[in-house]
Amino acid sequence: MNIIGPDYLVFGVDDVAASIEYLTAFGLKPVDVTDKGGLFEALDGTGIIIRHKSDPTLPPPLPTSNMLRQQVYGVRANEDLDAIEAELSKDRRVTRLADGSVETKDDHGFELKFQVSKRRELNMPAEKINAPGAPAQRKPNEIGVWEEMPAAPRSLSHVVLFVPDIEIATNFYCGRLGFVITDVLKGAGPFLRPKANDDHHTLFFIRTPEYMKGCEHLAFHMGGPTELMVAGTRFVKKGYQSFWGPGRHKFGSNWFWYFNSPLGCHFEYDADMDKHDDEWIAREAPMGAEASQIVLFEMREKWAPGGPPPGAKP
């Protein structure tokens, strides 16, 4: 089962106009968006789909107040859809749609859809750095930052779910769909990557009471830590609310910056995540501030030292 990762996350929101404003300001591109919602995509075509929560075309809501309606996973080929259908129809209802995609539910009742991935291949450089002892990544006269530099989300990276039972969730995604555990935060849950993706994680679980079941956050990959901080700084300057970051996680090594949203979950910019293969042996660490990050910063307004103190003689 060559699952690549989330193509789309679908939300049923209570304020469509606010969500449209938010997703656009976050840096996603409205594709077929009307006042009823639509798709907002990153540079590779992955993204977020929103509709009003009363829209009958949405999958049914979770029994909690969470606004997540469906996770749409991209797979490599039609054979992968056949394999998923064969495996999951052993013990649950699986629907084959006219376009070949497959819809079902996981063991916690989260709505799932699998499709041949609609993501477009990106061909653009990562952030380039120069350091003594290593070949220069930027050529002479190639500058690293400028005021109007692009800082757009490149790809939907991962989704984090609040689930009441880690074992049930892990057994389903690993045992039935071929995900692999890369690391475990004890007291929270495991990081998972699907077979056809070498990112440290596309999925992470946090154990919570049943009444919190839903999406805790989702993240988009940026081109590097500088793009992450530039995008986050621009977002804060427009009045959006930082929740955590910027900083750099330990597990996954990805830079992070989380924001509140009108979609009832956090939105994260992430950058420079570790890659893994099947040789990797999962680590464990107790959940907590130390395990969660190697560094953490808080944004402040631009400032510069300069010249003599006020009132000093020239």
Binding site: D14, Y240, Q241, N260, S261, G264
Partner: peptide, 25 residues
């Protein structure tokens, strides 16, 4: 305690019936 708005002064839910924390709804 963590800040609740999703944007400056945006503290209410969509229906404007409640204060909403836009961390986890």
């Amino acid at each position: 305690g963590t800040p609740m708005a999703w944007k400056t002064d945006a503290y209410l839910n969509g229906e404007k019936t409640h204060i909403a924390c836009h961390s986890h709804g």
